[in-house]
Design a protein around this nucleic acid. Structure first.
Ligand SMILES: [Mn+2]
Ligand SMILES: [Mn+2]
Length: 645
DNA sequence: ACGCCAATGG
DNA sequence: TTCACACGCTCCG
DNA sequence: GAGCGTGTGTCTCCATTGGCGTAG
């Protein structure tokens, strides 16, 4: 697009944002567009202002036929004129017209309008909107075979149904919707962000760290070819649809047990979805493609998308009680290069499915094979336990309280009767009873340790590594959570580690808690530190004190271990930390007393990640314990003293 | 009357 | 583009 | 206790609107 830097006086935000985005993409990836497309994009600036505005308004709306009556923009009073200009320039088509597909137009009709048209067709129907629309569309489909708008002329007087449809409204459809989506994809490097990001950021609803995009002058772009970009868009859309349909099927299968026969309806849908997953994954084709080098490249994203389809299919096979087939799909996914946390989980499911299908030696071999790949600690432990002979884990000291159960549940969670009479969930109850003994505390789970690491490693996370950033809207670098993340930042990691080992990190963390407040970071959830989150009940002051305490009492050596673990495996290690952080002042000049507590109510158990974190914390001599709250059977017995003992 | 959902816009 | 957690059921040793 | 299924809250930026299903 021409480099006419128009003054932004009075330009609506959406026009300004689009021009900025398009210019950036054409400068960076102009070669991915045909001459005709470049000319078309250039011509945007030459359109009369109302038409230009309308074009970008339409680009921001959903794809497909839009009803004319729903196009109302105060800044475009001469709507029809603008529509004519855009139609003349080939940007859009209007309906009803020759070859307009009545069935698609009917998709935008309301319940009432559908009923009206059905009456006109002499087929009155009572029932829901969906049923009415489907019935109407079926009728229109039939009609299409014999008559259409074109055969009948614009006003098909001899077909009352089409005539009535045409009388309801006009419709508009943008031809080039895909071109706009392509621009967004190329700008953001992913298919989750779009032009709205500019607005959200401008309004300060989401703020981002300032990063240095690019940094590798001779590098190829993140996407190689036009075909790759389009495949990425298409595969992503197909995966979304697949997962939606899988969710639907899963809901239908609720309560179905493997013993029972699968009803024919769900059985057929399951077959269809398995085929769809397989066709999206195209494993035979994937096996011939080279493994992508950088995780943020289009080819790598495409591979991940396809492998997710394969794994979704495997999960469906598991649900259907076909462990053998599921195992085959999972082994294929492993061979085709599933990475990261998914890889470990896939190995695990493979082992389980091999066992379920009675192939014990294969399961054993898969265990060995998986362990040889050095998976993260949780997966490693799962595998070792299946092989037998895993080392025993350290057991935390256990506190046992008993408490009356409160009748009723809060969103499925058990409620307990506090001494005050209030109904509290187990963690709240524990906090309340610890407070009797002077403890202050928070239900932190993973939030606080992750935030501490996010603040400590801030500069590493946003270091200007080549290819890590594309634009100014990054919550995380593009290779966040992917293998080799720390290695690609070896120098930054060495500096951070040294600083931590020398206990020189604290001032920096405190400073960033203020200077970076509100900036997106993959490990920091700012809402707990900031006021305004009143409905969620967070006390920002208390959270800041909790963070300060953790920063104070945690030796740099341990924080370094935490940092390295969370930077390498943010998702595998980012969960399972104990529920509560508690502290209490122990006199002037003394460091405060503190402890971590995992709370378990009646019927709850530790899961593996929690056991491993407890083991890790105990190994390092940190004060952590397990609090088991049992249901008090005999009413009004004096509760055991929780901490004094 | 209420809640859910998709669509929309800043 | 979810994830993290709690909780209940079934089966088994 | 293992294994599995299920549900919830918390994220998605947030407020508003219209359409629609459901409960009452
Ligand atoms: Mn918890
Ligand atoms: Mn707990």
């Amino acid at each position: 697009m021409a480099n006419t830097r128009a003054p932004s006086t009075g330009e609506p935000y959406y026009l300004r944002n689009f021009l900025l985005l398009a210019d950036t993409v054409l400068a960076r990836d102009g070669a991915l567009f045909t001459d005709e497309e470049r000319a078309r994009l250039d011509s945007v600036r030459a359109l009369p202002l109302p038409a230009r505005l309308l074009l970008l308004r339409l680009a921001g709306r959903r794809e497909g036929w839009l009803r004319h009556s729903r196009l109302r923009y105060p800044e475009i009073p001469a709507l029809d004129e603008a529509l004519d200009v855009l139609e003349g320039a080939g940007w859009l088509e209007r309906a009803p017209a020759a070859e307009s597909p009545p069935e698609e137009l009917a998709a935008g009709l309301t319940h009432e309008e559908c009923l009206h048209l059905l009456r006109v067709a002499g087929q009155p129907l009572r029932g829901g909107a969906q049923a009415a629309r489907r019935r109407l569309q079926a009728l229109l489909r039939e009609d299409c075979h014999t008559e259409s708008f074109v055969q009948l002329g614009l006003w098909p007087a001899d077909n009352s149904l089409l005539c009535a449809l045409a009388g309801l409204d006009q419709w508009v459809r943008l031809h080039q919707h895909g071109l706009f989506r392509l621009l967004e994809l190329l700008f953001f490097g992913n298919r989750h962000q779009d032009l709205r990001q500019f607005v959200v950021s401008e309004l300060g609803l989401q703020r981002f760290e300032t990063v240095k995009p690019g940094g590798e002058p001779d590098a190829d772009g993140w996407i190689r070819s036009r075909v790759e970009a389009e495949e990425l868009l298409e595969a992503g859309a197909r995966l979304d649809r697949l997962q939606e349909e899988l969710d639907e099927l899963r809901r239908e299968l609720k309560g179905w047990r493997r013993r029972l026969r699968l009803p024919p309806g769900p059985a057929r849908r399951a077959r269809d979805l398995l085929r769809a997953a397989w066709e999206l994954a195209t494993p035979a084709q994937l096996s011939h493609l080279p493994m992508p080098l950088r995780p943020q490249d289009g080819a790598a994203q495409l591979r991940r998308t396809r492998l997710r389809a394969l794994l979704a299919g495997a999960a469906l096979l598991e649900r259907l009680g076909r462990p053998g087939a599921a195992a085959a799909w999972q082994r294929m996914a492993l061979e085709l290069g599933v990475e990261g946390r998914r890889r470990g989980e896939t190995w695990l499911r493979l082992v389980v499915n091999l066992r379920h299908s009675g192939r014990l030696e294969s399961a054993q071999a898969a265990c060995q094979q998986a362990l040889a790949e050095q998976p993260g600690p949780v997966i490693r432990r799962e595998l070792e336990q299946r092989l037998g002979g895993a080392r025993p884990l350290r057991e935390p000291p256990v506190l046992r309280w008993s408490q009356l159960r409160h009748p009723g549940h809060a969103g499925g969670r058990t409620l307990l009767q506090a001494d005050s009479g209030a109904a509290l969930c187990v963690e709240e109850l524990a906090l309340a009873r610890f407070a009797h003994d002077g403890w202050q505390g928070l239900h932190v789970e993973n939030l606080l340790p992750r935030a501490l690491v996010g603040l400590a490693a801030w500069n590493l996370i946003f270091a200007p590594v080549p290819g890590a950033f594309l634009h100014r809207f990054h919550a995380a670098p593009l290779d966040w959570g992917r293998p080799g993340f720390v290695e690609r930042r070896a120098e930054e990691w060495r500096r951070l580690r040294t600083r931590l080992l020398r206990e020189r990190h604290r001032a920096g963390v405190r400073e960033r808690l203020h200077s970076k407040a509100g900036l997106q970071n993959p490990l920091v959830n700012w809402s707990v530190f900031q006021p305004g989150g009143e409905p969620s009940g967070h006390d920002p002051g208390l959270w800041r004190r909790g963070l300060e305490l953790l920063l104070e009492v945690l030796p740099g050596r341990l924080l370094a271990e935490l940092c390295e673990g969370l930077l390498r495996e943010p998702s595998e290690l980012g969960h399972g930390l104990p529920d509560l952080l508690l502290w209490r002042e122990s006199g002037p000049g003394q460091p405060p007393e503190w402890q971590l507590v995992e709370v378990k109510g009646p019927g709850d158990r530790l899961f593996l990640a929690q056991r491993l974190w407890l083991d890790w914390l105990l190994e390092r001599g940190l004060p952590v314990s397990l609090l088991l709250i049992e249901e008090e059977v005999v009413p009004r017995r004096s509760p055991a003293d929780p901490v004094g003992a």
